[in-house]
C-alpha cells in the first residue's frame, strides 16, 4: 500500500508512480479543490485508469473533480478491479489536461458565478431579442431557473460542476439569469452515521429471519 500527503507528493507524481508501475487497484483521494472538499477513488488496471467515483458521481465527471484535489491525502490500495466497469478511456496525461482546462475555465467564470453553491433567478427584462441556446444550455437553464445550485444541477445532469458553471456564466452574461445568492454549503455536509454494534445487526438479521 502506498499512502501519504499531497504536500509531500503532488497528485501528478502519484499518478505517474501508479501508471509507470503498471499497478492495479484503487487510489483513494481526499482533500480540498477549488470547489470545496472532495473525496473519491480512481480505479487502475495495469497502470491505466479504468473508472473513478466520488460520493456523488462516477466516470469522467468524477475524475475531473478528483484530479483537482491539491491539499489532501492519497492512499493506493492494490486489489483486483475486475468487478469495476470501464467508464474512462483516456490516458492519464489527457485526463490531467482535461482537469486542468476545466479548472482554468472555472477561474475565468468565477467573476460571474461566485460559487458552486450559487443560486439564480430568471431575469428576462434585458434579454437580447434573439438568442440561441443548445439543448444542454436549456437543461441547465431549466434547473438553475427552478432554484437548483450549480452543484445540484451538475449532479442531476451528470456533468462536472465546471461545465455547469461555464454554461451558467454564459446565461448570466446573456442576462437570462442573475445570481440570487448562495445556499449554505453546510447543507451539503455529509451526515456521518453513528454506526451500530455488530451484534445488534446480527441479532436483527436473526430476528427478521424468524419473523
Amino acid at each position: 500500500m502506498l499512502e501519504g500527503s499531497l504536500k509531500d507528493f503532488s497528485l501528478d507524481e502519484v499518478l505517474q508512480m501508479v501508471s509507470l508501475g503498471e499497478k492495479t487497484g484503487e487510489l483513494v483521494l481526499e482533500g480540498e479543490t477549488a470547489i470545496g472538499k472532495k473525496s473519491g477513488k480512481i480505479y487502475f488496471e495495469n497502470g491505466i485508469v479504468k473508472d473513478a467515483e466520488t460520493e456523488e458521481v462516477r466516470g469522467e465527471v468524477a475524475i475531473v473533480e478528483l484530479l483537482n484535489i491539491r491539499d489532501g491525502t492519497f492512499k493506493f490500495v492494490p486489489r483486483d478491479v475486475g468487478d469495476i466497469k470501464r467508464s474512462i478511456n483516456k490516458s492519464i496525461p489527457d485526463l490531467v489536461l482535461l482537469a486542468t482546462s476545466k479548472l482554468d475555465e472555472w477561474n475565468r467564470v468565477k467573476n460571474r458565478v461566485a460559487s458552486v453553491d450559487s443560486t439564480f433567478k430568471l431575469s428576462t427584462d434585458e434579454v437580447p431579442e434573439e438568442i440561441t441556446l443548445t439543448p444542454l444550455d436549456w437543461k441547465v437553464l431549466s434547473l438553475l431557473g427552478k432554484g437548483y445550485t450549480v452543484r445540484e444541477a451538475a449532479l442531476k445532469l451528470n456533468m462536472t460542476v465546471f461545465d455547469v458553471a461555464k454554461i451558467a456564466y454564459g446565461l448570466v452574461a446573456l442576462k437570462i439569469l442573475r445570481e440570487a445568492g448562495e445556499k449554505n454549503p453546510q447543507d451539503d455536509t455529509i451526515v456521518k452515521t453513528k454506526g451500530a454494534p455488530r451484534t445488534f445487526i446480527t441479532k436483527l438479521i436473526e430476528r427478521v429471519k424468524r419473523e
Binding site: 454506526g195 451500530a196 454494534p197 455488530r198 445487526i201 446480527t202 436483527l204 438479521i205 427478521v208
Partner: peptide, 23 residues
C-alpha cells in the same frame, strides 16, 4: 411479508459488510 423481509435482510447484510459498525 417474505418479500419485504428479503429487502430488509439485503440491507442488513450490506450494513454488515459496508456499514459503520463497532464491536
Amino acid at each position: 411479508k417474505e418479500s419485504v423481509k428479503n429487502v430488509l435482510l439485503t440491507l442488513l447484510q450490506l450494513i454488515l459488510t459496508q456499514g459503520d459498525l463497532y464491536d
